[in-house]
Amino acid sequence: MSRRKTPDQHDHAPLSSAIGEFWSTHQVMARSGSNRDRLGELIEAHELLHVTTADDQRLFPAFQFDGKTVNPRLLPLLRAMLPSQDGWSVTLQLMQPMPELGGKTPLDVVERGSDSDRKKLLKILSA
């Protein structure tokens, strides 16, 4: 049976529906085997994407992880984008289809694109 929403239903978590799962600090530490200090180092080095909620919770988009670590193909983008943008902006931009990429999202290119596609993407997002 389809779980399609009817017009009277409301998505109570539209960002989670669009972006996917977010992990807490404790979940990231448990999955990666890292401690808080190591997570802080990765954040400071712009190698770990996080967002801060209205109630000051730090959450990590699960899409960035490849097993226990951040997808290495995503790291150049994070290093280029995070110094000048907040985590929410980067998260949303990675999920937004781009005409320059033939309608693909940056995350699609990171996950399934060629090396030349990823270089093109880095150039676009670094501009």
Rank of each mutant, 00 (worst) to 15 (best):
S2R: 09
S2T: 14
S2Y: 08
R3V: 08
R4N: 10
R4F: 10
R4A: 13
R4W: 10
K5C: 00
T6I: 10
P7E: 03
P7Q: 05
P7F: 06
D8M: 10
D11M: 04
D11E: 14
H12M: 11
S17Q: 10
I19T: 08
G20V: 00
G20T: 02
E21G: 12
S24I: 07
T25W: 02
T25R: 01
H26G: 13
Q27D: 09
A30E: 12
A30C: 08
R31F: 10
R31K: 14
S32T: 13
S32D: 08
S32G: 15
G33Y: 02
S34C: 11
N35A: 05
N35V: 04
R36C: 08
D37N: 12
L39I: 04
L42Y: 05
I43N: 08
E44W: 06
A45E: 15
H46R: 12
H46N: 15
L48I: 06
L48R: 01
L49G: 02
T52I: 15
T53D: 07
D55A: 12
D55Q: 13
D56E: 09
Q57F: 11
L59P: 02
L59K: 04
F60E: 00
P61Y: 01
P61E: 00
A62P: 05
A62H: 09
F63Y: 13
F63K: 10
Q64N: 01
Q64L: 00
Q64D: 03
F65N: 02
F65C: 02
D66E: 05
D66K: 05
G67D: 00
G67N: 00
G67T: 04
K68C: 11
T69A: 13
T69W: 07
N71E: 05
P72Y: 06
P72R: 09
R73K: 15
L75A: 10
L77S: 06
L77R: 04
L78W: 03
R79H: 09
R79V: 09
R79W: 05
A80F: 05
L82M: 15
P83Q: 06
S84K: 14
D86N: 15
G87N: 09
G87I: 04
S89E: 11
S89P: 08
V90T: 12
T91C: 03
Q93C: 11
Q93V: 12
M95W: 02
Q96C: 04
Q96G: 04
P97M: 03
M98H: 11
P99S: 12
P99R: 11
P99F: 06
E100A: 15
E100V: 11
E100F: 05
K104F: 11
K104V: 02
P106R: 01
V109R: 02
E111Q: 13
E111R: 14
S116A: 13
S116M: 07
D117S: 02
R118I: 01
K119S: 12
K119L: 14
K119I: 12
K120M: 12
K120G: 12
L121M: 03
L121E: 03
L121T: 00
L122A: 07
K123W: 10
K123E: 14
L125E: 00
L125C: 03
S126W: 02
S126E: 04
